[in-house]
Amino acid sequence: MWTPPDIPVTRTIRRLAVLTSGGDAPGMNAAVRAITRTAGSRGIEVLAAERGFSGLVHGQLQPLSMGSVGSILQRGGTILKTDRCEAFLDPEVRARTADDLRAQGVDGVVVIGGDGSLTGAHHLARESGLSVVGLPGTIDNDIVGTEDSIGFDTAVNTALEAIDRIRDTAHSHDRLFLVEVMGRSSGFIALSVGIAGGAEAILLPDQAITGDALMTRIAGTRTREKASSLVVVAEGTDPSYTTRLAAELGALGHPARACILGHVQRGGNPSGHDRVLASVLGASAVDHIQGGHSDIMLGIRDGAIATTPLERVGRERKVLPEAWLELARTLAR
């Protein structure tokens, strides 16, 4: 269990705004629910910004109540809607937005999203003086400063369920399957799914490989009377890479099938892990704002809730743990 810090109240908060931004992630609704009910229990009003930062920019704020967030804990996606707001990149737009928020009595803002969204949260905090706290909401788990992000566990389990089914067919037909998972330029989903799914190889972002080299890599599994193989491919930056690699393998005499899991990994009911993670972080966001904290992201480190400056979140890149990479290589032999 994650240990929330004991934070004394140092600020009187009347109203909070909450928004979800960027790509949706299972568990975002659980975080919104936790923020709303924690704040409501302390007499703090909560306003929901519709469609991420666009809701702040255009003043699309709707009140949330204890009852209005009922029955959303188990729902995927985000009831607040989300988008990527280009207008918020303009400092003048951010200044007007901050003035509008203060005019409506908003003292603090909680932003749930990935690195781009949390960078926007940093600019709002630095330029406006409002108390702004970010929560890592992304299936990619590529946020520096936290071991886990809201939605990652669900995405891994969704992909793993698909891979287990694909392996049945691969075994039945003695066939090679390339299964592409999401993650943008981050390989955390691919690495976790590859280890948990027993993949013969894991191709991480920007690690292009030829068909001959791939067959050499998995040759050891074929010598163990194992005719079928399953390779997990991180989507990376080239949307056609997996299908091209499958075609190249076929031309070399190794028939392969490419399966692109795509956005199915974003949707669906959040796992119990993600519901608890989002609930704990959401409640702690209210604690931190009441405690006078701002321009920080809350995450998980060493079994406890920890803070990371939002400026660092946008500047640094989270790297894959070398121990996991070595484990994947060992288990694939």
Rank of each mutant, 00 (worst) to 15 (best):
A201G: 04
I218W: 03
R317I: 09
G262M: 04
L73W: 07
L191C: 06
D99K: 13
G70I: 06
M215Q: 10
E248K: 12
L320Q: 11
E127S: 13
T308F: 01
T210R: 11
G197L: 01
D99Y: 05
T158D: 05
A306S: 15
P239R: 09
D140Q: 08
V106Q: 00
I209E: 09
K226E: 13
R94Q: 13
A162S: 13
P5K: 05
G77L: 01
P321S: 12
G77S: 04
V69S: 04
L249H: 11
E322T: 15
R275V: 00
S279M: 02
D24E: 12
L56Y: 10
I35G: 06
I143T: 13
I189K: 08
E316C: 09
D100H: 14
V276G: 01
E316D: 15
C85F: 02
E45A: 15
A25R: 03
L298D: 10
N141S: 05
D107R: 03
A256C: 06
R266L: 02
A278F: 03
L310S: 04
I300G: 03
T158I: 06
V69D: 06
I305T: 11
R275Q: 10
L320F: 10
A30G: 08
A285C: 01
I143H: 03
L130Q: 06
I300F: 08
R217L: 08
E200Q: 15
P5G: 07
T38W: 00
F188K: 12
D83G: 15
N141M: 03
P91V: 04
A219M: 03
K226W: 06
